[in-house]
């Protein structure tokens, strides 16, 4: 594949290292930590206690977890070379539009495909634990995505580059400098392709990763729909959600 104009192999290598470093430094859990915790599961009693919480309490708890995770994504973005050279309007647009996608990619790390569980609040949980949210379709869609993404077996380097490429999507509405974002994304995609070639991965692997984008988009939309509905039914609780969560997912 030809390199984008004005881009050397050395630059591609520099981007790869920078994105990987950013990803590793801003991941909430190290791979060793996740391996160690993989079999720490919620007991049936603990699961039931989550299931019997009110929707308001469970939503609040999830909003707090998502907000924490978003802060790490913001840090990840800041450390991607070139991101901070974009104007702040574009930085915010990219983060608002792409942080959920990045969270969904990152979630794969905290998913155990053997027992279909996710790390949530310190232990691994099944989809049933989230019953009180009243969003079974959303929860199941997230678990299904994690299951299908875990089959791709992305390395940390691939995950880092894929996350950066998704975050740097030039088609987000209201961007000021589309070209600048596009150039950055091209470089990251090039780095991802080189990384896959280097590992001897099949060409299908990138196609499989990209094929998850529409599913991720539908999950993001579903989350917004559920949040809007929740806001209608429980406006007081929605008002107490973390300000960053409201900022990112507000209309």
């Amino acid at each position: 594949n030809p390199l984008p104009e004005g881009c050397s192999l050395l630059e591609i290598e520099r981007i790869t290292q920078s994105v990987l470093k950013s990803h590793m430094e801003t991941s909430q859990h190290s791979t060793e930590e996740l391996k160690r915790m993989a079999w720490t599961l919620y007991s049936p009693e603990e699961t039931r206690s989550y299931q019997t919480k009110s929707a308001e309490v469970m939503w609040q708890q999830c909003a707090i977890h998502i907000t924490n995770a978003i802060q790490y994504v913001v840090e990840f973005a800041k450390r991607i070379s070139g991101f901070m050279d974009l104007c702040q309007n574009d930085q915010i647009i990219l983060l608002k539009a792409g942080c959920m996608d990045v969270l969904l990619i990152r979630m794969c790390r905290a998913y155990n495909p053997i027992n279909n569980t996710f790390l949530f609040d310190g232990k691994f949980a099944t989809a049933h634990l989230f019953k009180a949210l009243g969003c079974d379709d959303l929860v199941n869609a997230v678990f299904d995505l994690a299951k299908s993404m875990s089959r791709i077996q992305m390395t940390e380097e691939e995950m880092a580059l894929f996350s950066a490429a998704v975050l740097l999507s030039p088609d987000r509405p209201w961007l000021t400098d589309v070209q600048k974002v596009q150039k950055l994304q091209e470089k990251v995609y090039m780095a991802l392709q080189r990384c896959l070639q280097k590992e001897g991965a099949s060409e299908e692997k990138l196609a499989k990763m990209v094929s998850k984008l529409p599913i991720m988009k539908s999950i993001c939309n579903l989350h917004i729909d559920k949040l809007e509905f929740f806001r209608l039914v429980h406006p007081e609780t929605a008002y107490t959600f973390p300000p960053l969560y409201r900022e990112v997912f507000g209309s």
């Binding site: 801003t26 790490y72 913001v74 840090e75 702040q88 915010i92 960053l244 900022e247 507000g250």
Partner: peptide, 20 residues
């Protein structure tokens, strides 16, 4: 700017993962 006050702050802060 007011609408994205926290994002602005986070983008301007020189935070490290330990601070998060």
């Amino acid at each position: 700017k007011e609408k994205h006050k926290i994002l602005h702050q986070l983008l301007q802060n020189s935070t490290s993962p330990v601070d998060l």
